[in-house]
Write a protein that binds this DNA or RNA. Structure first.
Lengths: 204, 204
DNA sequence: TTAAATACTGACTGACTAATCAGTTTTGTA
DNA sequence: TACAAAACTGATTAGTCAGTCAGTATTTAA
């Protein structure tokens, strides 16, 4: 049974390389990030990077998987032992956490907002599965809040899935403005919550 | 006075190269598109591409400028000789046209949604100006509809600028889902209009 | 202690890249 | 026609890239 050696921060070299790759792929894109760069950032040789990850594409897929698992586990952690007043409040708090996470873990969302994985997904099933799983998990979270709100009466009788999708796309739009430095999400946050409330409280 | 020769489609070689560059940069990204590729797509030599555009970056900036001017002139054309029943209807029709344009001119929006120009904007003033001008023009269009609606009473007393920004980010979110093949904007369109109406019609 | 598995490295390769330049062809005009 | 400007090309360069490989160092389990 191989024991994996860890460095001072408790990470194996493989994990170190993976973390550096996430940041570099997110900030510079896939094509504009060389394996040499990843190697330098982790004091490894390029050959060592290729020892842990057969190809550059495989390294990218591992990065995407890591982001997927990170987002999902962060939300799992967030929901553990947490109660919400009602569905509407739950939605509000989920949005706040989503925007917090997009700020704290900017690399994850930058990677998810880059074009490359979506092009790769057209020809690579593993990539497609990572993306689908990530987005399904996220939309599901918003949908749960809508369903809960419809049950407790805090949310009007709307189509749960479609409403969740529209709210999700609204938030993703704001996240994009934030990570691309277009508009500050802080300023938009209050307005976002107001708009969201209107969408959920009123029946057309 | 130099007369620019045009090919069978009425485009000069320079324009041909520029159009090919927009498509290739949009679909494959800046780093992953080589000048050789652009040259091959237009039956030109690489040296000829560099004759018309001093550097690869300059070609990209020309592409971004072209996209900016394309979007602005398309909206100018759309508004020419067009009357709207009221501000709310105007907003609805603008959204419909925005989504139509994002489908018809997918390359433009792909280029605007790629990460590269926003990184370049941090160090290149021309790039920053193109992006700012593009987004300001777009948000302004949505804002005009809100202002008009507030005047004619079809829209409640909301903050025009902030509401325009939230609606814009919502639409940009849907556009992103569309161009990245995540969710079909056709399905979301009706829901988008409904949500937009609620945001605009009700006072919190 | 030892042997095997794992982790890692330096040196290398062939393909590709942005950009240059000297020289040729095409075009517009006087 | 003549000539100058503009448009264009082939050949080249210096550098970067992903990926390989033969061999070395380290770790693990017996």
């Amino acid at each position: 049974m191989p024991k994996i050696s860890k460095n001072s921060e408790g990470l194996s070299k493989k994990e170190e390389i993976l973390n550096a790759a996430i940041i570099l792929f997110a900030e510079q894109g896939f094509s504009n990030t060389s394996i040499t760069e990843v190697a330098k950032a982790t004091n490894a040789s390029t050959a060592n990077v290729f020892y842990h990850f057969k190809t550059k594409e495989e390294l990218f897929l591992a990065a995407l998987q890591n982001v997927k698992e990170g987002i999902i586990s962060h939300f799992d952690e967030y929901f553990r032992d947490r109660e919400f007043e009602n569905g509407l409040k739950m939605m509000e708090e989920i949005i706040a956490y989503y925007l917090y996470l997009a700020g704290a873990m900017g690399q994850w969302f930058l990677l998810l907002h880059s074009h490359y994985p979506y092009r790769l997904a057209l020809v690579n099933e593993v990539c497609r599965e990572h993306l689908e799983k990530t987005y399904n998990s996220l939309v599901e979270i918003f949908e749960k809040a809508v369903v809960k709100g419809k049950e407790d009466g805090s949310i009007a009788d709307v189509d749960s899935r479609k409403t969740a999708l529209v709210i999700f796309s609204m938030i993703e739009g704001v996240v994009r403005f934030k990570i691309y430095n277009l508009y500050d999400s802080g300023v938009l946050f209050a307005e976002l919550i107001k708009s969201c409330n209107k969408i959920l409280k009123y029946k057309e």
